[in-house]
Amino acid sequence: MSLDESPSLVLSKLVTCAQEFNQNAGTLTQDNAPEEVKLLFNARSKVNFENDFLKLKERGEHIFNGISNTIKGFHIDRADQIAKISELYKVNDFIFVTGARGVGKSGVVKDFISTKGKDVPVFYLRAEDLDKTTLTMYLHLSE
């Protein structure tokens, strides 16, 4: 049995095991489960979480540092937009800032993050980064 089983196949095997186990009200536990079922949960993660986390943070910092929140040296006061983002963030914990190109979304987000980034982890993804099938594909582009 492969350790890379699809979730639907794993669920199917679990359902079959439960249906066939003991039709007289037996209790299926980790100790008495068939070896085939136990193997479904013994797979070690192939994901190097710490490395991927650091890559995501590093790419986010690169994007953050490339964002300008001034125009010809002048900082535009965006207190109203920052307050709105802050209120939405309190309620949702996760937000997307959208709008037409060039309206200052990135600058507003940079100003917001400059006040919040010390308290919460922040990860930046550009819209063009989201054309990958998985986050893993995005993280491993440069390898």
Rank of each mutant, 00 (worst) to 15 (best):
A18Q: 02
M1K: 15
D93G: 05
D31M: 07
C17N: 14
F41P: 00
G99E: 00
F53A: 07
M137T: 12
K105M: 05
E36K: 10
G102P: 02
D77Q: 09
T115L: 14
D52R: 00
M1H: 15
L54A: 07
V37E: 04
V15I: 14
T16W: 09
N69R: 04
I76F: 10
V37D: 01
N24K: 11
L14D: 02
N48A: 10
T29D: 02
V91G: 04
T98V: 06
L11K: 04
N69I: 02
D4W: 14
V91P: 07
I85P: 04
T136G: 11
S142M: 06
L39Y: 12
F112Q: 05
E58I: 08
N48L: 00
D93S: 14
D4I: 13
F74I: 12
T27F: 05
L141A: 12
Y124S: 06
P34F: 06
V108D: 00
A43L: 10
G66R: 08
E50Q: 03
H62K: 15
L14I: 08
G26D: 00
A127W: 09
V91T: 14
V91F: 11
F94V: 03
L139V: 05
D77M: 09
G99N: 01
T16V: 13
K57D: 13
Q23H: 10
L9G: 08
L54M: 11
D52W: 02
L28F: 01
M137L: 14
I95H: 06
E58F: 00
K55D: 06
E143R: 03
H62L: 15
F94R: 11
E36M: 09
T70G: 07
K46H: 13
V103P: 08
F74Q: 13
L54V: 09
K116W: 14
R44S: 15
A18H: 02
E20S: 06
T27M: 09
V10H: 00
A83Q: 04
N24M: 10
V47P: 05
L139Q: 01
I113F: 12
S45V: 10
V109N: 03
T70N: 09
C17F: 08
V109T: 01
V108E: 01
L56F: 08
D111Y: 11
N48F: 02
K57E: 13
T70V: 12
F49G: 01
D52S: 08
T16F: 12
L56I: 09
L56C: 09
S8V: 00
A18M: 08
T27A: 06
E50A: 00
V37W: 00
V122Y: 06
